[in-house]
């Protein structure tokens, strides 16, 4: 479902003397349906950079980056928009929402964007919020005022609202208590069982051991320093 070949990335800092910083070279991996692959490597090794590239948030400098049958490295913006709407979900570490929008709507939004009838979308959102122990009295409120852990759970509910065939998870269990961590791990297992291809970053080693089928160390994708 996700196939990366010879992917490279560099940043050019035009306002700092045009410095070119190569951050990735020769990255390769694949994630099949129903499989969860964990990215490992030290902080700064490029795990999040790679995830952002798969999502089309960072531009690739070269190589192939297939999600389904779309090469994200060369796709048009509107193809990536359609991919994100239908195929590729992303649970980031930060919740970015329009202020004032109720939590229930925030979670239902990915489904509404797909044209799911509003009552069905809200019912799905409600069941996820309930599972993730967000008290019902908070649903009409904007999540911008919630605690870090609550925002993280809203973010997860939103990411799992639609049954995406491919999912990117950036530290989905960070800042969660044991009970909610367990819920998230079950959600991941259920997504795998329905055939979702998952690429994730898990600093929580026990979680990683439980849901990941394979690990890929991104340190191997660091460009060799030019001699």
């Amino acid at each position: 479902m996700i196939r990366i070949e010879n992917l490279s990335k560099s940043f050019t800092l035009h306002n700092q003397g045009g410095a070119v910083i190569p951050v990735m070279a020769g990255a390769a991996l694949s994630v099949g349906p129903g499989e969860c692959v964990g990215l490992t490597g030290q902080s700064g090794a490029g795990k999040s950079t790679l995830m952002r590239m798969v999502y089309g948030n960072y531009l690739a400098a070269g190589g192939r980056l297939m999600v389904g049958d779309l090469d994200v490295a060369t796709a048009e913006p509107r193809q990536i928009i359609a991919l994100r709407r239908q195929t590729l979900g992303y649970v980031s570490q930060f919740l970015r929402v329009v202020p004032r929008v109720p939590t229930l709507e925030v979670v239902a939004e990915p489904l509404l964007a797909l044209g799911t009838p509003a009552d069905q979308a809200r019912a799905r959102a409600a069941s996820l919020l309930r599972r993730l122990n967000i008290p019902e009295r908070l649903w009409p409120l904007s999540p911008t005022t919630f605690s870090g852990g609550e925002q993280q759970r809203v973010n997860i509910a939103r990411g799992f609202a639609h049954a995406y065939p491919a999912l990117l998870l950036d530290e989905p269990t960070a800042s969660l208590d044991a009970a909610n961590r367990e819920v998230v791990l079950s959600l991941i297992e259920e997504a795998k069982a329905r055939g979702a291809a998952i690429l994730g970053i898990f600093h929580d080693e026990a979680a990683r051991a439980r849901v990941c089928d394979r690990l890929v160390d991104v340190t191997g994708f660091t460009p060799k320093a030019a001699a």
Partner: peptide, 13 residues
């Protein structure tokens, strides 16, 4: 380009 890509990984000076 894609809005978040242009804002998070801007290419032009």
């Amino acid at each position: 380009g894609l809005t978040d890509q242009v804002l998070d990984d801007p290419q032009h000076a």
